[in-house]
Design a protein around this nucleic acid. Sequence first.
DNA 1: TAGATTGTTAATCGATTAACAATC
DNA 2: TAGATTGTTAATCGATTAACAATC
Lengths: 211, 211
Amino acid sequence: MTRPQQTISEKTIERLSVYRRYLKELQKQGKERVYSHELSKLVSGTPAQVRRDLMPVGGNGCSSKGYEVNLLIEEIAKLLDCNDKQNIALIGAGNLGRALLGYLSGSRDNYDIVALFDNDPEKYGRVICGKRCYCIDQLAEKIKEYKITTAILAVPGEAAEATAEILIGTGIKAILNFAPKHITTSSTVFIETLDITKALEKAIYFSRKNT
Amino acid sequence: MTRPQQTISEKTIERLSVYRRYLKELQKQGKERVYSHELSKLVSGTPAQVRRDLMPVGGNGCSSKGYEVNLLIEEIAKLLDCNDKQNIALIGAGNLGRALLGYLSGSRDNYDIVALFDNDPEKYGRVICGKRCYCIDQLAEKIKEYKITTAILAVPGEAAEATAEILIGTGIKAILNFAPKHITTSSTVFIETLDITKALEKAIYFSRKNT
DNA sequence: TAGATTGTTAATCGATTAACAATC
DNA sequence: TAGATTGTTAATCGATTAACAATC
């Protein structure tokens, strides 16, 4: 039974995104039902955690028969996407930005990168990987026009803070930041930083700790 | 006082990496000493957490005078890098791989991407962004030759598991994985996955929850 | 029915924060 | 000295896991 609207933890949201990905694979394989212990094995979790994570998505689990794959995918989509295709902006059309564009384009049905932005006149005005690139100055205008709520920030570290400030000023609701900079703000924007250097230094540290 | 060898949590290691980055900036700015509350503000943490994180790096903090910036950088380097330049392999010379190569090359003094690997004959044998690209078949050989302990995995999702298995077979100690796949293993390799899609879907979800 | 799995509460575990004596 | 900050232990908080009645 779903509670009216318990807030769901960030970790649970992350895992739901991953469960969905695996569920779609199972769907392709023609699997109709799945048990919590099967799903948990795919992500090295515990069955209890899977069941707990699935509580807020609306209990369509069935004792002894597990979860219906199709239904579960649908319910997770309702929760994560609101059945709404989200328009995304990508700020920074350098190497990393273009790689991300390639990586995130294609068969995604819940979001779509609709516009790029860069401050390099060599880049804006052009179409890059099938997407139009605008000048940073047009950020506010285009974000409104395309109804963009989430931005991916792939600019060099030095430019990250200033660009983030502009973004936040436009009323954007979430930022996925790839610059190695912590972004401080007093607003309620949700900011998620994927810090590549941090992750690599962590891996290097633990490479030495194992055996 | 440093304890013989308490194991340090992953979260603390991550934060130490970030502290170091900011400390280097402070160093450039000519700042000689720093308080825990200053450092904490830069990462939106608490002073108590900073002090706690710094305990295992060897207490060079001084009551009322804070920490010496230069010394702290050195001590963190001792802990994270062992004062040893680490040789890294990059597997996958596609868009993402090449972007990562550009991103991680340059003025890094604690690690160095020394070899690329790809299974595309168009790519291996060539020099890409200044680094030689080898065929995946040469993985074991070259990893031994270059004394590589950590690998960055930037291959397409479909290839991730098989490639990871080969990697683990070579005796690599840590993997930084960019493929949207959970990698299961019975070995002790340290595996860190940076899941871009997961992070984006999370940002999209919370873009709707704010206000 | 018997066996297995779910949803959910209680117990456990780990990480963060508060507090404070020691120190500069 | 008085004020401020550190190192570290104790208290709190949140997330994970265990347990089990309800159910298929």
